[in-house]
Design a protein around this nucleic acid. Structure first.
Lengths: 233, 233
DNA sequence: ATATCATGTGACTGACCAGTCATATGACTG
DNA sequence: CAGTCATATGACTGGTCAGTCACATGATAT
């Protein structure tokens, strides 16, 4: 939590500091990010940053909360646009696509989340998790369970494994986007194709064998898809 | 490449230094790993390490090569035990299982590889890749292509996406193992179930719809994969 | 015993870092 | 005007680090 003085700052100065901090934490993991660099770039004194934040961790949490909020909002918005008839795959596509698009629209905030995923300091990560509400705890698993109940997904298949697979893919897509190994134009088709393979893989036996689904392999139609939780934070 | 002096060292001392370096790079990413800590723990002078290695990067590469060699050997051994009748899934299971098992048998070497994956310094990563031969370039993709040709895999499915999915899962399994979020006993069933879902998802349309395969979802019986029923056409 | 060579050493350099604190500045209050 | 408060400052502390270098030490060769 920033100190009161931070919010008393003139808009410009507050923005400047915020932006530079975002840049710093997007470019470096926690321990390698440098307050000294931030203050130097902002043209303020070292002591000043301690008027605004209790310390490095406090600033980090503040920035992380900004990033988390943006991400949650984007995902919520994408999901809320779906009707109740939306399938599991519609939901997954919509949520995940919304999340991945942030890699283009808010690349620095996105990178900050990815950097948290890379963090090796477990102590730090758990301190962050304690104070960062949005758990994103497996929404996908819930969706999956209800799809099983509706008969859309083979009950023989391990929901845990399916959820694990999907979140592994979205995490990797997120990393690859953030690191520039993939563009959004490459990532979204991969996501669609992944969902198609999952769809085929999870489908109950008795509805397999028809050609229909094969056509949406190209993943054209709607991107209502979705995502799950993992790549957040 | 270590200097000649390093190899002239008495066995014990060389081992000690190697072991401590492995521990250091397993516990920290490159920039956070500390030569000062290594020499202090080894009880040698700071200058001595520079008699053995040109610098931090040189030591890192040496350790990385050790880790890579162990991993490649394990995978090669696992694959070479398979006959020509082994299916795509047999191969994937064997190779991946062998690799994941290293997380238990050689946890520190394994962690070093995982830390490289987390590395944020692109410059460093590319300098490493330049000098580290084993590219591990997508073997899976090759296997997949030939499975498509044999008719075991639906040609409509994107091989790239399938390969991407699978490697995303194995990467995540590796990370979770290395970070202690998963035990091998949890990871291997997840791997089996993932392969089962992939198998169902990639299977050509005309052979879908029979109930038989459902039973090996539990991944119990044999890992020989799944060719169980007709995976030919 | 003298010279040469491989090896070992640790104090030192210069560069970072997070965080502190005594001291300023200036605005508002009585 | 004097007092109080919020804010700003940057030199400073004590810590980390990689890498260097002038100087041992000791073995072998001459």
């Amino acid at each position: 939590m920033p100190r009161r003085t931070f919010f008393n700052l003139p808009e410009d100065k507050r923005r400047l500091i915020t932006d530079l901090a975002i840049e710093e934490f997007a470019a470096h993991t926690y321990h390698k990010a440098s307050l000294s660099r931030i203050v130097a770039r902002a043209g303020i004194a070292k002591g000043s940053i301690y008027q605004y934040f209790a310390g490095k961790f406090d600033l980090y949490l503040y920035i992380l909360e900004l990033a988390a909020r943006i991400k949650l909002e984007a995902i919520d918005k994408a999901i809320s646009g779906l009707g109740p008839e939306a399938t599991l795959y519609d939901r997954l596509m919509a949520a995940t696509e919304a999340s991945l698009k942030l890699a283009e629209t808010h690349p620095r905030l996105y990178a900050i989340g990815m950097n948290l995923l890379r963090e090796t300091d477990k102590e730090l990560v758990s301190r962050v998790m304690e104070r960062l509400e949005p758990k994103g705890d497996n929404v996908f698993l819930d969706w999956l369970q209800s799809a099983v109940e509706k008969g859309d997904v083979d009950p023989q298949v391990s929901p845990l494994a399916a959820s694990y697979m999907f979140s592994a893919v979205t995490m990797r897509l997120g990393q690859d986007l953030a690191d520039g190994r993939l563009s959004l134009d490459e990532a979204l088709p991969l996501l669609r194709q992944t969902l198609d393979i999952l769809h085929r893989g999870l489908r109950p036996r008795d509805e397999a064998g028809f050609g229909g689904a094969g056509t949406d392999l190209t993943g054209e139609t709607d991107e209502t898809g979705e995502s799950d939780e993992t790549d957040r934070e």
